[in-house]
């Protein structure tokens, strides 16, 4: 019974389905109000402001150019939270079609990941424009480094979205667990602070977080203009592992989707 979706559907069709569902997500996100894009950029910018007040103003953290430091971590993280927090509902909100039509359901979380990824790309432009006012030096390495990081992060986010969206159909309180977990993960990922602030003996535990390396690499690439290839490959493999596990769980559960909805 096990059929590869590529054999079952034509590649052309898979591509069209990915494009149309991704475009739908983007259109819906920005159609609701004209300011849609600016609102979603405003969110990380306001967070940045609050963290600057709290950590630079009050706690006097020793990081130069803290604004630039923060946005190079917060903007990539925004892609993560936007997808992960919507993932529990992506299948539920498509219940009426999943119950009737057989199509590669894997594409629903993929479209969510991609549409938020495109949004992140746009916000990356905003980040760079802001950065230019604060001494950010564009680097030639960005040309290949940014696509590589987008790939690794996209695979990781998609893998998690596959797991969360499918399990949430059977245990409907996963959504709440995910919310709490994401807040915890935010503080355990070096976004507000630098890797060198983490005590050496604990760093291995921090590094188990799959986003640890990704956020570290974004910051190194954007602020220092290079990509640490060894760390990159390590976390790319980690992301691939999560993606494969996610796909297996999703495929296994997908046979029961129509019953559970």
């Amino acid at each position: 019974m096990k059929k590869n979706i590529i054999n079952y559907y034509s590649l052309r069709y898979i591509w069209d389905l990915i494009v149309i569902l991704t475009l739908k997500e983007i259109k819906v996100k920005y159609k609701r109000n004209l300011l849609g894009f600016f609102w979603s950029i405003l969110n990380p910018l306001l967070l940045t402001l609050v963290f600057i007040i709290a950590f630079k103003g009050v706690l006097k953290i020793h990081i130069n150019n803290y604004l630039l430091f923060l946005i190079t971590g917060l903007f990539p993280w925004q892609w993560v939270t936007n997808v992960i927090l919507s993932a529990p509902n992506i299948l539920l909100s498509n219940a009426s079609i999943i119950k009737k039509i057989k199509f590669p359901y894997e594409i629903l979380p993929l479209a969510l990941t991609l549409s938020e990824g495109i949004h992140f790309l746009l916000s990356l432009l905003v980040l760079i424009i802001i950065g230019l006012f604060y001494n950010l030096k564009p680097s030639i390495n960005w040309l290949w480094g940014i696509p590589l990081l987008l790939l690794a992060q996209g695979i990781l986010i998609y893998g998690l979205a596959l797991i969360i969206s499918s399990i949430n159909l059977f245990f409907r309180d996963l959504e709440r667990i995910v919310q709490v977990f994401m807040t915890m993960l935010f503080y355990l990922t070096p976004i507000l602070y630098d890797i060198k602030h983490i005590p050496q003996k604990y760093i291995i535990f921090f590094a188990l977080n799959p986003f640890f390396g990704i956020i570290y690499e974004w910051r190194t690439l954007l602020l220092k203009g290079y990509l640490d290839i060894k760390i990159y490959i390590l976390y790319l493999l980690y992301s691939l592992l999560i993606f494969i596990v996610g796909l297996k769980i999703f495929r296994k559960l997908s046979k029961k989707f129509a019953e559970a909805l």
Binding site: L169, F170, F171, R172, D173, L174, R176, I177, E259, A260
Partner: peptide, 15 residues
């Protein structure tokens, strides 16, 4: 057949 409790709508907690 359908399991009577396919969905644990009360979630992990009650499960």
């Amino acid at each position: 057949w359908y399991p009577l409790y396919n969905v644990f709508s009360q979630g992990f907690k009650s499960f």
